[in-house]
Nucleic acid binder design. Structure first.
Length: 480
RNA sequence: GGGGGCGUAGCUCAGUCCGGUAGAGCAACGGUCUUUUAAACCGUUGGCCGUGGGUUCAAAUCCCACCGCCCUCACCA
């Protein structure tokens, strides 16, 4: 039983206490990262002293000698223990170790007969006793459910998982660096909204007790970032969580990380250039040759990316004419898509997503969307039925969505009212405060949203969004 | 929500088709071993076979329901 394994470890914990040691350790100054320690080795010398701290991942006992593998985030170092040639008080500590214990080790570096740089241990300091038995050492932890529920074990046991999440961190840092260098200012806007807006999605509802008011976890920060444009911040961005109360999949997590950028005096063309440059920079950091492998294909993000007009794609692949409302509804119904009382453009867009988007490999910009499905986007001056919006698609995923922002408060109100009339579109209530803000004058601007999780998926060759979110949404389950 | 798959020791997995005493490797425990690399060798322990019901003389195995996970479709500005 697992309980037996635990009991064996508790016995060793007690033994450490009897030696006067604290199995859970104290401040441990002087430890250096494992990789750094390995770098201090000087060929031919065996007197270089180092101190490291890490997790005990393997133990090979050979009579009076034993070899241990100590891991930290930077790597692995082997520890050599000769019980008969050590201070007896120190030697007495070693029999009470278990795999996964956290240890501090001091000693001198040498090279073993088989060539591995190793610490000859002089001093051992317990830092934390592991009471739970570890996953199997060779196959590691493969059960995806356990990997997601106990991500800490996944990170310990699977080095490539560590690498994926470190890369995620580097990607986000790089985005910030690039935007900061271009003069964008990072801001934080509310996560709890009285009216959910800026996207069409079902929100999570929560409640503020002392105000006795329902609040919504934000589905997008858009309407608040635009208020900042009104307020005179010309270039703002936010990287933070959005929440959408919808089904989840390999490409959707209920909470996900979105970056939104707004640039006063720009438009969707400037956002297209920004998108290309940002993603290309990230891709170059992953692969200087600009060859990004993903799901069996290879993508090159070198600008400029292909641009294709929405209507051209529709004409080519939808199988019906954009203007033929009856044919559009008939085709959608035949395809099992909802038609009902929805506006014909919304139904047509379903056809677009079903028949046109899958033909895109990318990276590609789909540009110039029908105005009817873009309530926050400025229409083209000469063609009011088309608006200045693009989506960037790669490998069947939408990774970016941007437009020339609608800044006419009267037009914006009309669009909201039209949206509200179609209950189907999911809008609950018009955000009057947002319209009021536009009434003070918002500069013409380009706005861009990039789904960070999906970009990280692309750049880490991860097929599931759960592999790039440390703690993906899971049904609650009792602790095991 | 629909369809498909999976759930057996702490971990990685056989066994299920075709019902007949619950298996292996790793880990643990006890030995041998003074430079090993998944150390090796000898021995021992460890199981509500996801949960509940049914069929049967007999169920890990067949049937039903439920729980959880994965894939897929649907939903999804």
């Amino acid at each position: 039983m697992s309980d037996d394994l635990r009991q064996a470890r508790l016995k060793k914990l007690a033994a450490l206490r009897e030696l006067g040691l604290d199995p859970y350790g104290q401040r441990f100054p002087g430890a250096i990262p494992v990789r750094e320690a390995l770098g201090l080795f000087v060929e031919g010398r065996e007197d270089v002293a180092v101190t490291v701290a890490g997790r005990l991942m393997a133990l090979r006992k050979m009579g009076k000698a034993q070899f241990a593998d100590l891991h930290d985030i930077t790597g692995k170092i082997q520890v050599y223990v000769r019980e008969d040639k050590m201070d007896p008080a120190q030697a007495a500590r070693f029999p009470h170790l278990d795999l996964y214990d956290l240890l501090g080790v001091s000693g001198t570096l040498f090279r073993t007969r088989t060539g591995e740089v190793t610490i000859a241990a002089r001093e051992l300091t317990p830092l934390a006793k592991a009471l739970n038995p570890p996953p199997e050492k060779w196959h590691g932890l493969t059960d995806v459910e356990v990997r997601y529920r106990k991500r800490y074990l996944d990170l310990i046991a699977n080095p490539e998982v560590r690498e994926t999440f470190l890369r995620r961190t580097r990607i986000i840092a790089s985005i910030r660096r690039e935007l900061d260098a271009r003069g964008f200012v990072e801001v934080e806007t509310p996560m709890m909204h009285p009216i959910p807006g800026g996207a069409a999605a079902r929100p999570f509802i929560t409640h503020h007790n002392s105000l006795d008011m329902d609040l919504y976890l934000r589905i997008a920060p858009e309407l608040y970032l635009k208020r900042l444009l009104v307020g005179g911040f010309p270039k703002v961005y936010e990287i933070n969580r959005n929440f959408r109360n919808e089904g989840f999949s390999t490409k959707h997590n209920p909470e996900f990380t979105m970056m939104e950028v707004y640039e006063a005096l720009g438009d969707y063309s400037t956002m297209m250039e920004l998108t290309e440059q940002l993603v290309a920079t990230l891709a170059r950091e992953v692969s200087p040759a600009h060859r990004i492998p993903f799901d069996g294909a290879v993508y090159d993000f070198t600008p400029p990316w292909r641009r294709v007009a929405y209507m051209d794609l529709f004409r080519e692949h939808a199988g019906v004419a954009w203007g033929d409302a009856a044919a559009i509804r008939a085709k959608a119904a035949a395809a099992g898509l909802p038609t009902g009382s929805r506006p014909v453009e919304a139904v047509a867009n379903d056809l677009f997503e079903k028949y046109c988007e899958p033909t895109l490999t990318g990276p590609v910009f789909v540009i110039d969307y029908p105005t009817a499905i873009c309530p926050l986007t400025k229409a083209k001056r000469d063609r009011p039925e088309i608006c200045e919006r693009f989506e960037a698609h790669v490998a069947g995923m939408e990774i970016a969505n941007a437009f020339t922002e609608l800044n006419d408060p009267i037009d914006q109100r009309a669009r909201f009212e039209c949206q509200l009339a179609n209950k189907d579109e999911g809008m609950a209530r018009i955000d009057e405060n947002f319209l009021d803000a536009l009434g003070y004058g918002m500069p013409p601007a380009g706005g861009l949203g990039i789904g960070i999780d999906r970009v990280v998926m692309l750049l880490t060759n991860s097929k599931s969004i759960r592999d790039v979110i440390l703690f993906p949404m899971m049904r609650e389950q009792e602790a095991s």
